[in-house]
Design a protein around this nucleic acid. Structure first.
Length: 651
RNA sequence: GCGCCUGUAGCUCAGUUGGAUAGAGCGUCUGGCUACGAACCAGAAGGUCGGGAGUUCGAAUCUCUCCAGGCGCGCCA
């Protein structure tokens, strides 16, 4: 609500300056440092002071007198050395929150399709905390976009034919000497096959370290997987499929769903790369090197993606043995995402999510069920950690070199920093550190070393902790209910933890901190929502219905109640959810929504403590407080929904 | 060597496009529950915004420079 009146105000001031003075300056709106200065501050007088050769204060006073009155604004006043402070009409504003804000003809939001690709875990081992950050960031960004009415498609790329899968295949075949049938049996009987692979991957990585000659196993497995023939290829299918499904289950635990899973095997089989290769050659985006260190390779010249790189620092796209690098395949995939490849996958439904949504996976043969149109986006966001920014630059440069300037501009690397482990947590997990590592603030996780915190382990621990708390507080509640509440609290704790940091902060993961439910945490925010609901529930359990707010709270009543500063501040904060979401989308920073949710929860907890709503003797005030509680609750629930955090029945 | 990122309270981090007296959580200390259930609330202490120079009416924010740390720069992904 607040962002609407802000927009209206900005438009009004801007058109006034234009009509009265012929000025076309951007109007900046600020939040005054202190609430007693009003709700919005305009520093525009400072900008005009120099050209007008007048003091900012004098300009502010002049403008404050002149600015046209608009509904909802009570006053403009010059303040300080030249601010114009704007006060809202509290009664009008409160009433508008009940009856709805008079809509104006807004420019329709760009209806383009946005593709967000996230998660993207190699299907050869269990997911770890780093993957959780990726998925939570991506999923929350998607929820934010959808909340603003944007059309979004969520993709999760499955690299099911890559080196990492080949390594685990080689481990099953050569180290463990297991047949595809035996591994398939293992998948069926193992509770957590992805955990088994986690250890196996660490084992074979160590084996490669000590026995470099064993690396030919990897080559053998890779070739078999690419050709699709023989027991190694069969193993590859079994492993990748089983681990991928484990990942999907893990992500579903924390509320993350996808629309489609594009797989590398189809990129290969459907000759996506061959098509992209032709395109790149035709348009001269890559060149064949006949001499120098890259002789025999197809290379993208460095000038395409870097201003400072030297002549011979091009990026190899096709190796001298004719095989394509990962970046090459990524360019083909990116072209498909924009609908520029001239080819499409076939699709088949893989899952039906509990909410009814269908999850599709690519296929190399036409399926029976008609699939939605995938790909062909107008914007593409790739959620990938910031270490890969160089490669993402190369992918965008590939599009540019093909003449797709606009699509290159609309290829966004949604980068974030890694999740590392705090030394304390390493010690708790029994991870031995070298003396150098112990000196550092954090230690990087490593799949190859099997060093890290598995996603499901963390979720299990969070549920266990939450369950203890719930049991202690609600000993009489049915166990099935408590289990559900514990799960929801765990999701809240995890998702909030992953979102409270801005993207380019390295998270030094600390188990104790992540397991904390106090202070700036998900459960704190959930608790505020539960408290609000408890008030309303208590009312009903006393046999009273919720008042008809629209009938009982007119503008005058709102003005009377909102004259109390505490109430006004809580209403105002509650109404700023839209601003927070818009700001978060504009900056690509989901943390802004998380921080807002926390601040809002804090404001309510403060109010909750100071004003016993149900004990309020004055009838109008009691009705108002109930409305305030209901309004806060629905706004917080909406924001939590965008963060993917459920509101438990009780806590 | 080149490129990108980071440096804000004891610790972990916010800080909108440059705006009024730099914020939060944790930790420390002091208070507050037969309750709309304290996963909470109130209060206190704690800051040369890495150093220096510059631009500006105004700088944590922009520019330059120095210092410290992280990451990237594979015919790996």
């Amino acid at each position: 609500m607040f962002h609407r009146i802000e927009r209206r105000l900005a438009r009004s001031v801007s058109s006034h300056l234009k009509e009265r003075y012929g000025l076309d300056v951007p109007v900046v709106l600020e939040q005054p440092r202190q609430s007693r200065f009003g709700e919005v501050a305009l520093p525009v007088a400072f900008q005009l002071a120099k050209p007008w050769r007048k003091s900012p204060r004098a300009i502010a006073e002049e403008l404050a007198r002149e600015l046209p009155r608009i509904p909802g604004v009570a006053s403009y006043e010059a303040a300080g050395s030249g601010y114009i402070n704007v006060r809202l009409d509290r009664g009008w504003y409160g009433r508008a929150l009940i009856t709805g804000f008079p809509e104006e003809e807004e420019a329709p939001v760009d209806a383009g399709k946005i593709i967000v690709e996230h998660t993207n875990i190699n299907p050869n081992k269990a997911a770890h905390i780093g993957h959780l950050r990726n998925a939570v960031l991506g999923d929350t960004f998607v929820r934010m976009l959808r909340a603003l009415g944007r059309r979004v498609e969520v993709q999760n790329y499955i690299d099911n034919t890559g080196v990492q899968v080949a390594d685990v295949v080689a481990a099953f075949h050569f180290l463990e000497q297991k047949s595809p049938e035996e591994v398939a049996a293992l998948v069926a009987e193992q509770d957590r096959f992805d955990y088994y692979c986690w250890d196996l991957y660490a084992r074979i990585s160590a084996h490669f370290q000590g026995n470099p000659e064993a690396l030919r196993w990897r080559q053998q497995a890779l070739h078999a997987i690419e050709s699709g023939q023989g027991p190694l290829a069969e193993l590859g299918r079994i492993v990748a499929d089983a681990v991928m499904q484990a990942h999907l289950r893990t992500m579903l635990r924390i509320g993350v769903q996808y629309d489609v899973l594009p797989r590398e095997s189809e990129i290969l089989h459907l000759k996506f790369w061959a098509t992209a290769f032709e395109l790149l050659k035709q348009r001269g985006a890559i060149v064949f090197e006949t001499q120098g260190k890259n002789a025999g390779c197809w290379v993208m010249p460095a000038a395409a993606f870097s201003e400072t790189a030297g002549e011979d620092e091009g990026k190899i796209i096709v190796r001298s043995d004719g095989t394509v690098t990962y970046v090459g395949k990524d360019i083909a995939y990116q072209l498909w995402k924009f609908g520029l490849l001239g080819k499409d996958f076939h699709y088949r439904p893989l899952w039906r999510y509990p909410d009814g949504q269908t999850l599709w996976v690519t296929s190399d043969t036409p399926g029976d069920e008609p699939a939605p149109v995938f790909g062909a986006g107008d914007w593409v966001y790739n959620v990938i950690d910031s270490r890969q920014s160089y490669l993402q630059d190369v992918v965008a440069a590939g599009l540019r070199a093909l003449g797709f300037e606009e699509q290159a501009r609309r290829s966004v690397h949604f980068a974030y920093e890694i999740v590392a482990l705090s030394p304390r947590t390493c010690a708790e997990l029994g991870i031995e550190l070298s003396p150098e590592e112990r000196q550092r603030a954090y230690v990087e996780v490593s799949g190859r070393k099997g060093l890290g915190v598995k996603a499901d382990d963390l979720i299990d621990k969070l549920i266990e902790r939450a369950h203890c708390e719930v049991e202690a507080r609600h000993p009489d509640a049915p166990e099935s209910e408590r289990a559900e509440v514990a799960r929801q609290i765990a999701v809240g704790a995890l998702r909030y933890f992953m979102l409270k940091y801005t993207r380019n902060a390295v998270i030094a993961f600390d188990l104790q901190e992540a397991l904390s439910f106090e202070g700036e945490t998900g459960p704190y925010v959930q608790y505020a929502a539960v408290r609000a609901r408890n008030i309303l529930r208590k009312l009903q359990s006393q046999g009273q219905a919720l008042p008809d707010f629209a009938a009982q709270l007119d503008q005058a009543a709102m003005a009377r109640q909102l004259a109390q500063e505490d109430f006004w501040q809580l209403v105002l904060t509650s109404s700023k959810a839209g601003s927070a979401i818009e700001r978060a989308v504009a900056s690509g920073e989901p943390a802004h929504v998380a921080k807002f949710a926390f601040q809002l929860a804090q404001a309510f907890n403060n109010f909750y403590h100071a004003y016993p709503v149900l004990q309020e003797p004055d009838a109008e005030r009691r009705t108002f407080l109930l409305w305030l509680t209901a309004y806060f609750r629905s706004e917080l629930a909406r924001v939590l929904g965008i963060l993917g955090i459920p509101v438990p029945e009780y806590m």
